[in-house]
Simulated assay, not measured.
Amino acid sequence: MRFAGRITEWHDEKGYGFITPNGGGDRVFVHVRAISRAGPRPGPGLQLTYQVERDGRGRMNAVSARPAGRDKPAARGGRSPKGVLALACLAMLVAATAWLGMPALVPAGYAAMSAITFIAYAIDKRAAQAGHRRTPESTLHLMALAGGWPGAMAAQHWLRHKSVKASFLVVYRTTVLLNLGALAAWIFEHRA
């Protein structure tokens, strides 16, 4: 059975909040993973339809939530500018190898680090869902800085992991800029 309600409290950095059912009743916990990617970013006032499940402690949690007025859930993991951008960056590195005369090891290194980083995100997401020990955020940032940022970008999109917490995303974007700056400096140095 689907219910309808409105988000009345939202913690964007942590990716969760609470829904107050239309017509009253107890608030229901909702995590960003339970909300369809289609539609506006979750926040206070967003109207949702959702199903309810009890967790291991008997608390009510919203699942299969989507913005009110959407008849069908959106397909998860579809292409978006962020997911496609990650693949496009790797393709540009391959093209730059031929055009700028970069060694083939450069795009190969980015591809390898991206694959490793994507896997690290997947392992961390699984650990988070199971309540096990997590991969430190600093480790994920170092992997991105070392050239795995396209894989991190793809994981944030397709796995929906580490894609909401604002403080994490600020550091992640900084690692991308630092990595690209170092790559540009290296290219400039070797072309001169």
Results as ranks from 00 to 15, higher is better:
M1W: 11
R2D: 02
R2T: 07
F3D: 02
F3H: 12
F3V: 00
G5A: 12
G5C: 09
R6M: 05
R6K: 13
I7E: 05
I7N: 01
W10R: 01
H11F: 15
D12W: 01
E13Y: 05
Y16T: 02
G17A: 08
F18E: 03
T20P: 00
T20I: 02
P21K: 06
G24L: 00
R27V: 06
R27Q: 13
R27A: 15
V28E: 03
V28S: 07
V28K: 08
F29W: 10
I35H: 10
A38M: 05
G39M: 07
G39W: 10
G39I: 11
P40A: 15
P40G: 11
R41T: 09
P44C: 08
P44V: 12
G45C: 11
G45E: 11
G45D: 07
L46P: 04
Q47F: 02
Q47D: 14
T49F: 00
Q51I: 00
V52P: 01
E53H: 04
G56C: 01
R57T: 03
R57C: 00
M60Q: 14
M60H: 10
M60T: 08
A65C: 10
A65E: 05
R66D: 00
P67M: 13
G69W: 06
G69S: 06
G69K: 09
R70G: 03
P73T: 04
S80V: 00
S80G: 14
P81W: 12
G83C: 06
G83P: 04
V84R: 04
L85F: 15
L85M: 14
L87I: 03
L90F: 07
L90M: 13
A91F: 03
A91H: 03
M92E: 11
L93R: 01
A95R: 02
A95W: 11
T97Q: 14
A98V: 14
L100G: 07
G101H: 03
G101D: 06
M102W: 13
M102G: 05
L105S: 13
P107N: 05
A108E: 02
Y110H: 10
A112D: 01
M113P: 01
S114T: 05
S114N: 09
A115C: 09
I116L: 15
I116Q: 04
I119H: 08
I119F: 05
A120T: 14
Y121C: 13
A122S: 13
I123E: 11
D124V: 09
D124S: 09
D124A: 11
K125V: 02
R126H: 14
R126V: 06
A128F: 00
Q129W: 10
A130M: 14
G131Q: 06
R133H: 10
R134I: 10
P136I: 04
S138Q: 15
T139W: 12
H141A: 07
A144R: 09
L145V: 07
G148F: 09
G151K: 09
A154M: 12
H157T: 09
H157P: 08
W158A: 12
L159N: 03
K162Q: 07
V164S: 14
V164T: 11
K165I: 01
A166R: 15
F168R: 08
F168A: 11
V170N: 00
V171L: 13
Y172I: 05
T175N: 03
T175F: 10
L178Y: 01
G181H: 12
A185S: 11
I187F: 14
H190Y: 12
R191D: 04
